[in-house]
């Protein structure tokens, strides 16, 4: 297993726990699925248990739940106005899911759900799909005004519309790749530096002394990764809010 310890990619492997094959598709319950379940259970249990007393004067843990609620609520209200609050459950679920998945992934031997492009891409598609479906349902073809900014000279209009359409289509990609790449790169970097510690300390006393540097680096990176885990969840939620604002007010 020595090689596994220093293989930075190994942590991203998906291994089936309960193999399930339906209609030619591999729908196995994997370690990724397991951690999705863990993330959901952990987040749900935390939110459920800390708010169960419904205390008028909140304790510390209840404050955390309330703060996350108000944090996301303010974010959404600032970006999309009070009409945007109908999307609050979606934004809050996305924020909590991504945040808990990111933070949980920082524990050693834990799988990081958000380090797989397909997961972040599905979440991004969920957001953009919501924007498109709600946008057309609410405004009909008026939703297409999103691609025609007001006050642009007619000559430039085809160019601007093309740019707007490309930028809209690139949103799910940028949204998903940003989160995925941040988590992937952070975990690989952590693993590489931790691998240096293991490899160097196997070389005897001088190696152990030399391993102090990558160890310090790994500690610092862990701190950075905690920040990144929170920041990426925040960025994902903020961008979701801004895209939802487009669905609500396409003319802007």
């Amino acid at each position: 297993m020595a090689a596994d310890k220093v293989d930075p990619i190994h942590q991203f492997h998906i291994n089936p726990i309960v193999p399930i094959h339906i209609g030619g598709y591999d729908l196995s319950f994997t370690n990724s699925s397991l951690f999705m379940v863990v993330v959901v259970l952990l987040a749900s249990a935390f939110l459920y248990l800390t708010t169960s007393s419904r205390a008028l004067i909140p304790g510390r843990l209840q404050s955390v739940s309330e703060m996350s609620y108000e944090f996301v609520a303010n974010m959404l209200r600032d970006a999309a106005g009070s009409h945007g609050m109908k999307f609050f459950p979606l934004v809050f679920s996305l924020f909590m899911f991504v945040l808990v998945a990111n933070l949980l992934g920082l524990f050693p031997y834990f799988f990081t759900v958000t380090s797989h492009i397909i997961v972040t891409f599905c979440l991004a598609i969920l957001v953009i799909g919501t924007v498109i479906v709600y946008g057309f349902a609410k405004h009909g073809l008026g939703f297409l005004k999103l691609f025609v900014p007001a006050g642009v000279p007619v000559v430039l209009l085809p160019l601007v519309v093309a740019i707007e359409i490309i930028s809209f289509l690139s949103r799910p990609i940028s949204l998903s790749v940003r989160l995925f790449a941040n988590m992937l790169a952070g975990h690989i970097t952590l693993k590489v530096f931790s691998g240096f510690v293991v490899s160097l300390s196997a070389l005897g006393a001088a190696g152990v002394a030399g391993a102090v540097l990558p160890l310090a680096m790994a500690v610092a990176l862990t701190g950075l990764e905690v920040l990144v885990a929170f920041l990426q969840a925040y960025v994902f939620a903020v961008l979701t809010c801004m895209y939802l604002n487009d669905a609500l007010h396409p003319g802007h």
Binding site: I9, F12, H13, I14, P16, I20, Y25, D26, L27, S28, F29, T30, S32, S33, M36, V37, V39, V40, A43, S44, S93, M96, F97, V113, S115, H116, I117, I118, V119, C122, L123, L126, F180, L184
Partner: peptide, 22 residues
């Protein structure tokens, strides 16, 4: 691994289930 399409159906379905319930 993150670009292995063989794992996509499983991840999508379980993400849909877990996130949907969440």
């Amino acid at each position: 691994p993150p670009f292995d399409p063989a794992t996509f159906p499983s991840q999508i379905i379980w993400l849909a289930i877990t996130f949907g319930l969440f």
